[in-house]
Nucleic acid binder design. Sequence first.
DNA 1: AGTGTCACTTAGGACCCAATGA
DNA 2: TCATTGGGTCCTAAGTGACACT
Length: 759
Amino acid sequence: MSGDHGQVNSGCKDSDPHKHRDKHKDKEHRHKDHRKDKEREKVKHSNSEHKEHAEKKHRDKEKLKHSDGSADKHREKHKERRRDDKIKSSHGDKYKKEKENGYVRNTSPAAIKSEPEEDNGFCPSPPHNKTFKQEYDDEEFEHKPKKVKTEHDKKAKKRKRDYEEDEEDEDIKPKKKTKDKKGMEGKKVKKEEAEKWKWWEEERYTDGMKWRFLEHKGPVFAPPYEPLPDKVKFYYDGKPMKLSAPCEEVATFFAKMLDHEYTTKDIFRKNFFKDWRKEMTSEEKSKISDLNKCNFSEMSEYFKAQSEARKQMSKDEKLKIKEENERLLQEYGFCLMDNHKERIGNFRIEPPGLFRGRGDHPKMGMLKRRIRPQDIIINCSKDSKHPKPPPGTKWKEVRHDNKVTWLASWTENIQGSIKYIMLNPSSRIKGEKDWQKYETARRLKKCVDRLRTQYRDDWKSKEMRIRQRAVALYFIDKLALRAGNEKEEGETADTVGCCSLRVEHIKLYPKLDDQEYVVEFDFLGKDSIRYYNKIPVEKRVFKNLQLFLENKQPEDDLFDRLNTSILNKHLQELMDGLTAKVFRTYNASITLQQQLKELTCPDDSIPAKMLSYNRANRAVAILCNHQRAPPKTFEKSMQNLQTKIDEKQSQLSAARKQLKAAKADYKASHDDKSKKSVEVKRKAVQRIEEQLMKLQVQATDREENKQIALGTSKLNYLDPRISVAWCKKWGVGIEKIYNKTQREKFAWAIDMAENDYEF
DNA sequence: AGTGTCACTTAGGACCCAATGA
DNA sequence: TCATTGGGTCCTAAGTGACACT
C-alpha cells in the first residue's frame, strides 16, 4: 500500500502551493519524477513494440488483430504506467471497503450493496430489451415536433421555428447562424417582470451571444477567519501550544472533520499535513513534525459545542440570521440580464477547507485555499455598473465576454480547474439550454433506428476501430453508460466510463445460468459509484469483445482504438448535435414515457398513480445507475411505517366488525338511527381502507427506493414535458411530482406541454 | 491526432428546517 | 411540547464536450 500513491506524492513534492494551479507544469513534473528507471525501460519497450507493430501491420489489419500505430504510442505509455502502479498496489486494494454513512463504496463485489436488481418491475440492462425490436411509431418519425401542440400559437410561432425547425434543418447551435440580430431587448418586459417572464415565448439569440446586458454585484466572500478563544487549546505531544492564526485556521479544518472516517486515512493525513506545514511559521514547522502527536480534540469539542449552541438559539436569534441571509440573497443573489432580474445559482464563494474528493481520491486532505478578490475574474457588460471589490482590494480582472454565461470565475488550487458563478436553473439562459437538450434527444429519437442498424452493421466491419466504436456505442445506447473521457492519472480517483473501460472491468460468460453471451460489468463510474450489471448481449457483440480482449492485460483499455472524441466525431456525422451523452437523455426520457404508459392505470387512485410515476422514474434511475446511500435511519423508519400499517390493519378489522354489528342492528330494528349508524360505519371503513392503502403504497415506494436516487434523473434526464403531460392527462397536481424549485426550473415545460405531448 | 483549456452539465451527500407525530 | 424524520436546499466535485493550438 505504501507505494501505491508514490506517483501522486512525487507529483506534489514541490512545496509551492501555487504549483497546482498549473496543470501542465504539474504533469511534467510528475512525468519526470515517475520512477526514472521504469521510464527508460518503457521507452525501449514501446519502441520495439512499435516496430513490431509496424511490421505486422498489414497482416494484422486483415486479421483484425491489434495492429499499428502511432496513435497508440501515447496510450501504451499510459497503460504501462498504470500497470506499474497496479503491480505495486495489491489488486484487491482497489475496491477496498470504505464505509461512509453506512454506505459501502468501492466494495468488493461480494460485500457490496446489491447490484441493480430486477425486482422493481424493470430490467436494469434495458431499455430496449423490448425496445430494440419494437417499432417506434412511424408517424413519430415523420412529423416535426411542432405538430405537438406545445405552445400558444401566436406568441410561440417565431420561437418554435427557431427551436424546432431551424434546429432540425440547420443546427441547434446558434453560432452556426451568423449575425441574425433579433434581440430587441429594450422593448420588452418591465411589465411582464412582475408576473413570471415567459422567456420561452420569445426569440432566442442565434448569433452565439449569450446576453446583451449583464449587471451584478459580484460574489459574496467567505467570512474571514475568527481565531479561537484562548481557552481552546491545541496540544502537541501532550503540551499546549498556541498556533499562529493561519496555522490555526487550517488546524480547525482538520478538527472539524475529526469524526469522519477519512481523517484516519493515510493519504488524507499525509496530504493534509503537507499542506498544513506550508501554513506554519518556521517555528511551528520545526516543532510540529508528526501529525500523530497533534491533539485537536479541544478544538473539535469547541466546534461541537458551537453547533449545539446554534441549535439552541432562540427564535429571535434564528430569525435574525435568516433575515441577514435573506438580505444577502436580495443584494447578491440576483443579477440583471437583458432586462430581467435573474436568480444567481451560487453567489457565495467556496470557503476554504480541506478537499474531500469522492472515492479513493489521491488529493483528499489537501488544503483548499481561501479565495480573495484578486483571484476573481468578473464578467459583466461594459455599460453596466461594475461590481465593487471589497474595500482595499482589487479584482483580478473585469471582462466583458458575452459569449459565456458566467458572472465570475476563479481558479481552484486543488485541480487547477476554473470555478464559475452562474445563474440558477430557473433562468432563461439555463432553461433554454435545457429545452434544447431535450429537443436534441427528440431528434435522436427520429433516427435512432437508423443508427442502431448502422452500428450493428459495424460490428462486422473489417476495421478494428470501427468495431470498437460500434460495440461501445451499443453499450452507451443499451446501458446508458457515460462516454468515458480519459483522465489524468493520479489526479483523480480511478473511475471510468464507456470509452475508458479496461479489460479488468468486464467478464465474459459464454453461458451463464440459462443465458448465453453474458457480459458482466463491474467498475467505478462517476463519483466512484459502482456500476455492476450482468447482461446478455448479442452473439456478435460477444465475439467482438472476445476479440478486443485478446492479448491484453487486465489494466489495458478495452477499446484501445477508441476515445470519446473519435466517438463523438462519428456521432456528429450521423446526426447534427449528436454526442454520447444525448443517448442517456434520450433513453432516460423514452423509458419514462414508455413506463408511464405501461404502468399507469386509469382507474387508480392518485397515490397509486404516484406510485406508478415513481416506478417509472425509478426505472430510469436504475438505468442510469443513480444510486444513493440508504438513509441512515432507513430500517427504523421502515419499521415505524410497518407498525403504522399493522395498527391501521387492526383498526380496519375493528371498524369492519362495527359495521357488521351496525348492519345486524339495522336488520333487526330497521330504524333511522341504526341506518344512519350503518352509513357512518361504512364511511369509517372506507376511510380506513384508503388510509391503509396509502400507507402500503408508501411502504412499497420507500422500500423500492432504498438505494435509488430519483432526483438526478428527474432533474437532468427526463424531458419535463413528459411528466407535465402525464399530470395533465391524469389529473395529478403538478406539485405532486415537482416541488417549488423544480417547478421553477421547469416552468417552460409546465407552461407549454399539453396532455398529449409526445417525447 | 494529440493536448490543454475552458465552459457548462451532472452528481451525491451534508445540512437545515418544517411538518409530523408521540 | 419535544423529538424525529424526511424533503428541500446548498454545496461543490466530477463528469462531458467544444475548441484552439501545434
